[in-house]
Simulated assay, not measured.
Amino acid sequence: MSIENLIKMANQIGQYFASEPDREQAVRGVRQHLKSFWTPAMLRDLKAWLEQHPDGDLHLLVQAALLEETAKA
């Protein structure tokens, strides 16, 4: 899958969880969704892209979820 599609889907997930008033819970929701429904390859590709483009156009909740997941690994 192209990185453009991964970013688009990730941003849609982030936008969905943005309505959650508790930011920590929103980040957990994004992280759980990615863990439950994305393949390891999709996550690996998105994480690699984020490392190379830290100022890229990726929803802040998704960035936080990916960074927390990386920190736990």
Rank of each mutant, 00 (worst) to 15 (best):
H59R: 06
P21H: 04
W49E: 05
A65K: 03
L50I: 03
G29K: 01
L60R: 12
K47F: 04
L50Q: 04
Q12I: 13
A48G: 04
E20C: 09
E4M: 11
T39K: 09
H59I: 01
D45Q: 08
L50P: 05
L50C: 03
M1I: 08
P21W: 03
M1P: 10
I13L: 11
K8W: 14
M42D: 02
V62Q: 02
H33E: 01
E20Q: 15
L67C: 09
L43R: 05
A41Q: 14
R44D: 07
V30R: 08
G29L: 03
E68P: 03
R28K: 15
S2Q: 12
N11H: 08
I3E: 01
G56K: 04
N5Q: 11
L6S: 06
A73D: 15
Q63G: 05
S19V: 10
D22C: 07
R28L: 14
I3R: 08
A65E: 08
S36W: 04
F37L: 04
L61Y: 07
E69T: 13
S2Y: 13
G29A: 09
A18F: 04
L34N: 06
K8G: 13
Q15Y: 10
P40Y: 03
P21D: 02
I7K: 10
T70M: 12
W38S: 06
S2N: 12
E4P: 09
L58E: 01
E69W: 12
W38N: 00
E20K: 13
D45M: 11
L60Y: 12
E68G: 12
Q32A: 14
A48N: 09
P40I: 09
D55Y: 09
E20R: 15
A41W: 08
A26G: 00
R31L: 06
A18T: 06
E4I: 00
H33A: 11
E68I: 13
V30Y: 01
N5R: 12
K8H: 15
Q15P: 00
E20D: 13
D55G: 11
D45K: 14
G29P: 03
E68C: 02
K47N: 03
A48T: 06
G56T: 03
I3W: 09
D57F: 13
G56S: 00
P54E: 02
S2H: 15
L46E: 01
G56E: 05
E68W: 11
Q32D: 10
P21V: 06
A26L: 09
F37K: 07
T39V: 01
A65R: 06
A73S: 12
I3C: 01
F17C: 02
K47V: 10
L67M: 14
K35D: 12
A64Y: 00
H53W: 08
I7S: 07
Q12N: 15
D55M: 09
S2K: 14
Q15L: 14
L58Y: 03
A73V: 14
Q25G: 04
L58D: 05
R28A: 15
G14C: 05
S19A: 08
H53P: 03
V62F: 12
K72A: 15
E4D: 09
